[in-house]
Design a protein around this nucleic acid. Structure first.
Lengths: 136, 136
DNA sequence: CCGCATCCGTAACGATACTG
DNA sequence: CAGTATCGTTACGGATGCGG
């Protein structure tokens, strides 16, 4: 396992800021944005065209969808295939790498389904506690 | 499993925007921010005081650390315990909920460790491809 | 149909100084 | 030690319009 488990999250403070950061940060910074994980899950369900993805995730803008797809392609998590039809057809699908990410990602999804209610309840309780303090 | 696996990421387009969003989004929006996952992993390694956390993650600001800890507490993922020493001591630790998150989260960490190099290589290749195009 | 470019508002985040 | 308050910057993301 990585250094993380030891509690030493970053390399000892070397003079070099060092660009290639901790793998954990790198990966989380990528799937952590608002849309990436959702698109990955959608592509996992089935390879899709641009417009299909827009329908699957209705509240993403074209701008963001394009950007997320470029990033996935760049990171080697998805592939882009253009068909010279008219009008053109572009299909996105998960790469091997992308598929391998699904296992841990689906783990998170399952956790989310199981614990979402409890989390929302905890938030409510916490906020009500604050409200009591504010009322004085 | 949730609707996600079917590719239907959000509820059918009901008139209600509905505040309580898809669990997946909710959870990812929380651990997806720049620091939360890192703090969770650190707390998992061992319960820690505020300043210990700062040392474990040297490049987080006090402002952000405070905010992340408040959010974790609010979501019921971590607990905050104050000891009336002088100067005061505050210890944070994972709650049961928080611990249950560790399983899927560590899955992601392991994936990151395994695939980080390949991802960086893919990026490099991609960027070089772009450079070739730009050179013409 | 696909997707790039532009403009712009809003958050997230960082640095610093100050308090119990 | 463990925060809060304030300020400034940056990057994320939405809306729209053009082009292949």
């Amino acid at each position: 396992m990585s250094r993380v488990a030891t509690g030493n999250l970053v390399e000892g403070q070397d003079a070099e800021p060092d660009l290639s950061r901790c793998p954990v940060r790198d990966v989380l910074d990528h799937i952590g944005n608002k849309w990436t994980a959702l698109i990955l899950l959608t592509l996992n369900a089935s390879p899709s065209r641009f417009s299909q993805l827009q329908r699957a995730v209705p509240d993403i803008s074209k701008r963001m969808l394009t950007q997320v797809l470029r990033d996935l392609e760049r990171d080697g998590l998805a592939t882009r295939q253009v068909f010279a039809t008219k009008p053109p057809t572009v299909e996105y699908r998960l790469s091997r790498q992308g598929e391998s990410l699904m296992t841990p990602l689906i783990g998170l999804v399952q956790w989310a389904d199981l614990h979402h209610d409890a989390m929302r309840a905890a938030r409510k309780t916490y906020d009500e506690g604050l409200a009591l303090l504010a009322a004085r």
